[in-house]
Design a binder for these strands. Structure first.
Lengths: 386, 386
DNA sequence: ACCTGACATGACAACGTTGTCACACGACAG
DNA sequence: CTGTCGTGTGACAACGTTGTCATGTCAGGT
């Protein structure tokens, strides 16, 4: 990681005497002394002094605008004395480069910013994804604008518009919309875009997803192999692609195991509380044969299931496998068996794809699919109890 | 939440016939038809068509640049026919407003972006904080640039420089540096800045922090009140303000309880693994009288402690109180007793302060201190065992 | 002395937008 | 018919920067 950002200049000097002998007529009032090491210096909470521009630096150091530009951008072909003079003025005026003006004029047109629209930045999946994307971006000297969509399609559309208006260099999208035709003009205009966790619909673009179908079949097969027949599936909103796929995997595997008659789904569960309520209702005593195992299609649905089983005293009697790993799942009692998606891998794959596109890769869209792995921790290995 | 972003225009129309009768000479090649609802349309992965500008829209609709600007900004004083004509051209050309050029020229100088430099976006504390900040920001039609500092001072300085160069409207900082004099020029220039979780040093600025001293004293008092005397404290890097304060609170409370001789600290623990190792070493059998309780100064140190106690079979024999709540702490066995910081409240308080400053509030810096609350869940209420 | 080339520097236009001001037009009062 | 006003529209400069090209200076070769 390279610590210096673009277009900046060394720190203050010991002697801050008058600048070079050139007769530049600079009427700037900004003081030049640096703060002493004493108690907290006040920020002078009053009128805001306008920021110094290259013009100010040029006037103070007695050179032309263009020369200041050269110094600030570390271009070659400036004599050491002039460079020194300009850098002094930069430090004295606290000049800070204006990247927006710079990018406007520059030919490359890069803004050094990418946007990431995720489901909810505060949940561990989105947060970890964002973090590994950030790490890739930092290496490319790029900042990340992050927002949560909360499964609201209109918000997605409004935010994409905002990001395009900001001329981001690229876009990472975990879509909340069912179809993304609205993105066509941007894709046509060459906006590098990578879908994550959910495939694009109605448009063609790069994507990094998990094999939800195979993963959920694997999870269900695991339960079946431990002797379970009455397995209930908990799922999120069916309109969410991944949620529906995981339920589909559950059904397919049940069919394949000859358990088609036992299929029992509770879908459209939005919150841990909803999952908890559903499980409580399912395992209420006296309602005939109860399920002996649960497949939870999302991490916080698994958490809700654990809460319910805990309350019912069934944590060690009902098997449970979740989709999505999360911190501390191993510390529960019993440890929670999950299908883990390697979030770090997903995030860095997204970053690699995105920056390859930004760097001009024009190959046809790629679909990266990552296989989730089963992490047995105890809860998924409980044998059936009637 | 208002769904529409600034400066945009209605969607496409049914009939896309030729534009108004004006004889504008527009030589733009962008096709106008919208995608059909069939299978995924390709993004035409080839040469990138340059984005249409207001000039293009003006040419196509046969009006002046300024009139397009008026329409796009929804200014009054444009005849309905002209407005309609311009909007048609905007839709036809997929025109997207360039906020950078706009802000450059505009007097207000706002960029509609704030920066948030936090410890680590993937940890639950930073992530939740970011999320609640984002919610406030969205109401203000502002985007958030987020980065992780990982306690690296140079990264903080480089990223702040980058954010200033981007002319963010405000800055939220969980500093990794020991002192922040480097921020003085920005503060003097009126950059709204709110420190979070840690107080500013060497500069004066708004802050939202938790009362770490009182909180850790509370935690230790809780253990003492349950009969513990040999209480060990686990702490993060002493150079981190909050870590040192929590250790200090531990020492103060131990002194106050007449347990000065029992003070036992393990500081500078950076990771859960380090905490786990420290606890394992402390509770190794045969090393004389062992502590009967643990105070963990940060959430993942508590997690490490739980791992160690679990491995040693001591989870129900050694008391444990953590600082910082986290998801699932209630589902452990026993539930983890913690001092909870209300992260949502911290985040929205930070947002309120920040946007008040952005809106021109010039009052002296405010220091908001939030009291953490004790959440007893079992682990902190275990009586001493020899 | 003259020409050549390398080097340092600056003048100017341009990026895409908006603030300011001026103009053209029709309506209306005198 | 003239003068005044209100309304819609456009010309132009400006925001802060960089790409292009021209100019000035000086060293070295003939």
């Amino acid at each position: 990681m390279s610590p210096s950002e673009m277009g900046e200049v060394p720190a203050s000097h010991g002697s801050s005497g008058p600048l070079g002998s050139s007769g530049a007529s600079a009427s700037l009032g900004a003081a030049g002394c640096s703060a002493s090491a004493g108690s907290a210096a006040s920020a002078g909470a009053g009128h805001h002094v306008a920021r110094a521009t290259m013009k100010d630096v040029a006037a103070l150091s007695g050179v032309s605008l263009k020369t200041v530009s050269r110094v600030v951008n570390r271009e070659a072909g400036v004599s050491p004395e002039v460079r020194e003079r300009v850098e002094r003025a930069v430090a004295r005026l606290d000049y800070s480069h204006n990247v927006h003006a710079s990018n406007l004029r520059r030919s490359s047109g890069r803004t050094g910013t990418v946007g990431a629209l995720l489901q909810d930045i505060s949940n561990s999946f989105s947060a970890s994804l964002l973090r590994s994307l950030e790490d890739v971006a930092r290496d490319q000297r790029t900042a990340v604008l992050a927002s949560s969509l909360d499964e609201e399609p209109e918000r997605e559309i409004a935010l994409v518009r905002g990001l395009v208006a900001r001329r981001v260099d690229g876009l990472v999208l975990m879509p909340a919309t069912a179809r993304q035709e609205y993105l066509l003009p941007e894709l046509r205009a060459g906006l590098p875009t990578v879908f994550v966790d959910r495939l694009p619909r109605g448009v063609d673009a790069d994507s990094v997803t998990v094999d939800n179908l195979a993963g959920s079949r694997h999870a269900v097969r695991h339960l079946v192999s431990h002797g379970h027949r009455r397995i209930v599936a908990l799922g999120d909103l069916r309109t969410i692609q991944t949620a529906e796929l995981r339920l589909q995997g559950y059904r397919e595997e049940m069919q394949a195991a000859g358990l088609g008659d036992e299929i029992l789904e509770r879908a459209d569960l939005r919150t841990p509380e909803a999952a908890e309520a559903a499980v409580r209702q399912l395992f209420r005593t006296g309602t005939g044969p109860r399920p002996t195992a649960i497949f939870a299609g999302r991490n916080d649905l698994a958490v809700g299931a654990v809460r319910a089983l805990r309350a019912l005293g069934l944590v060690h009697r009902v098997a449970l496998v979740g989709f999505d790993d999360f911190p501390l799942a191993d510390l529960l009692d019993p440890g929670l068996t999950v299908m883990r998606q390697n979030v770090g891998q997903i995030g860095s794959e997204v970053g690699r794809l995105l920056f390859a596109r930004i760097d001009g890769d024009a190959a046809p869209p790629r679909r990266v699919v990552i296989e989730p792995t089963l992490i047995p921790r105890g809860s998924g290995e409980i044998p059936p109890h009637e």
